[in-house]
Nucleic acid binder design. Structure first.
Length: 578
DNA sequence: GCCGTTTTCGGCCCGACTGTTTTCAGTCG
């Protein structure tokens, strides 16, 4: 069993404990344990098996959780979780995803009504049966109904990072089958969409069909939906993520990759173009209608070439002008991961990060970066132990000291802050404290349910502060969880351009904020960008690739992005503000 | 349940908003 799965069982158990009203410190320990397990570099299952090792050497894991971990690895659950699941239906965990309902309310609902599905919860609200319970009223019923609608809209999609993980796992497993040459992901994963509905894997090689057999018997396959000669579909993992695996003949590979990568709209436009040229494009190849002569299909580039087009990067294939641009030879040069020279948004143990400045710097060096900015939270985020002015000044001094002596990692460190934008648009820290820092990111973390006009004013005011250089996760969305807050993006983007403020492309797979369409719109206004991971753990520095993919979906090249600059010009850019 | 030590017990645990209240519990970040 992988660490990720163990962590998931711990998270679930903690959620159930919360509904059961158990001791909050114990719940916290379970959650801490889950985070520790999730981020641990070695497999917990291996450590448990090794008689010379002890899982209690992992910080956050004590005697109690060691026992629990052993149980989970052995049989996928633990006693506490089993007992709680006898008390509450498994769907109780689903109820927690409905905004406005917390553990206490859910427990109360279960005490009064025997319900187990979201549909039944919806009916309770519609029949005004929630308002008879203590501390519940009409407003809550409305809010829950709205949240249920949102929840339904989102279900059935998965984070890009999740889909990528499943893809990597299956590519590894199917790639080991003798006679399989390559396993290639297509679909929205290949286009880098922020959420993915299902996964398409294309298999080539003399024994590609053997991979289908391996797939349907794969241990994590929960339900086989279909199994034919060339295609198998199944639900993978407890989340029920649908994966389609196709075995392809090598001569079809390019056409199939093009076809299954999509998007649908892109393909319709491409096939229309083919028809106009007297060609017919399908997943089996590109054929000249007259005489039924096959002209392309082996490679994707060959298919595009035969249509008079350069190869179009998958991230652009949304039928948003990419075909016209390709035809006119004005496809943009897109940014790549190797262009990125530093990461500009990360947290440390000073606030809610899991590693120290030195550890983050070392991790950044290992990824080949020239510089990083440390940007912990400001004091408004009390729960994260945000920095006040005094700590900011001390931190800026500490960083100057580090750079003077040369950081052990050899990396240049910039002092920064992720400063909260307060309700009225003021920044959370005094200007003279902000002036001490190399980089100020301004972000909204609270009061997200304002009217659009009010939120716009708030952001416009935040941009007035002369120390602000980056607007952090500008729309505040949390994928599959919270919609972006409403505001006039165009006005704010234009103001950011005018004031020389960069817009963040937050690379955390839960945010990817800004997203492609907004990026492109802002670029048209002259905006410039920073891609940052918002890492709270050294491993999360790897999120950069999701940010780069998102920037590519916004048609950005290396010159549009601040942190493609080498250390010296980057430092100079920080100094100069119009 | 973990951790650390003034070493086997006590601390961990903030702050604002919201809705349903008549003084505050629950949610969220």
């Amino acid at each position: 069993m992988e660490n990720q799965e163990i962590a998931r069982v711990l998270w679930e158990t903690a959620d159930l404990m919360e509904i059961a009203g158990e001791d909050s410190f114990r719940i916290r320990s379970y959650r801490n344990g889950a985070t520790a397990v999730e981020g641990y570099p070695e497999r917990i299952a291996d450590i448990l098996r090794d008689p010379h090792r002890n899982v209690t050497e992992i910080p956050g894991i004590g005697k109690g959780l060691a026992q629990v971990l052993a149980e989970i690895v052995e049989r996928g659950s633990c006693e506490r979780r089993d007992l709680l699941l006898q008390k509450f239906p498994p769907t109780a965990l689903e109820f927690l995803k409905i905004q406005g309902l917390g553990p206490k309310s859910i427990a109360l609902i279960f005490q009064h009504y025997r319900i187990s599905t979201i549909d039944e919860l919806e009916r309770l609200c519609q029949e005004h049966k929630l308002r008879v319970l203590p501390r519940m009223g009409a407003k809550l019923e409305e809010k829950v109904l709205r949240s249920i609608a949102q929840y339904r809209q989102r279900s059935g999609r998965y984070l890009l990072s999740y889909a990528e993980g499943v893809a990597a796992e299956l590519i590894e497993a199917l790639g080991q089958v003798p006679g399989v040459d390559a396993v290639t992901p297509a679909g929205s994963l290949r286009r880098g969409r922020e959420t993915v509905g299902d996964l398409d894997l294309l298999v080539t090689g003399p024994s590609a069909h053997a991979a289908l057999e391996r797939f349907v018997t794969y241990p994590r396959v929960e339900e086989v939906l279909g199994r034919g000669e060339n295609k198998a579909s199944a639900k993978v993992g407890r989340e029920g993520f649908q994966v389609d695996v196709r075995a392809l003949a090598p001569e079809n590979f390019g056409a199939a990759l093009q076809y299954f990568t999509g998007s649908k709209d892109h393909n319709v436009a491409i096939r229309t173009r083919a028809v106009k040229m007297g060609l017919k494009l399908s997943e089996y190849g590109l054929v000249r209608v007259e005489g039924d002569i096959r002209v392309a299909g082996e490679t994707e580039a060959g298919v595009y070439e035969a249509l008079g087009l350069p190869w179009i990067p998958p991230e652009l294939r949304e039928n948003c002008g990419e075909i016209e641009a390709a035809a006119e030879g004005r496809l943009p040069e897109l940014v790549e991961l190797q262009h990125i020279r530093g990461d500009l948004h990360m947290h440390t143990t000073e606030t809610d990060g899991r590693a120290t400045l030195d550890e983050m710097a070392e991790a950044a060096r290992a990824r080949g970066y020239q510089y990083i900015a440390i940007t912990d939270h400001s004091k408004a985020l009390a729960m994260a132990n945000g920095l006040d002015e005094k700590r900011v000044v001390a931190f800026a001094r500490q960083v100057r000291e580090i750079n003077r002596n040369g950081a052990p990692s050899g990396l240049r460190v910039f002092s920064g802050i992720e400063c909260d934008i307060l309700k009225d648009g003021a920044l959370d820290l005094a200007p003279d404290a902000l002036a001490e820092l190399d980089l100020v990111i301004a972000s909204v973390h609270s009061h997200m349910n304002m009217e659009a006009a009010e939120m716009t004013d708030r952001l416009m005011r935040a941009l007035e502060c002369p120390h602000v250089r980056i607007l952090g996760h500008p729309t505040g969305r949390l994928l599959l969880h919270r919609d972006p807050f409403p505001f006039d993006f165009d006005r704010v983007a234009a103001e950011a351009v005018r004031r020389g403020v960069w817009l963040e492309i937050n690379a955390s797979p839960e945010r990817l904020d800004l997203h492609g369409a907004l990026i492109r719109g802002a670029k048209a206004k002259g905006a410039r960008f920073a891609i940052s991971t918002d890492a709270h753990h050294p491993k999360q520095l790897d999120y950069m690739r999701y940010g780069v993919v998102t920037a590519r979906r916004g048609w950005l090249g290396p010159d549009d992005i601040l942190n493609t600059l080498a250390a010296e010009p980057f430092a100079a850019a920080l100094q100069s503000r119009p």
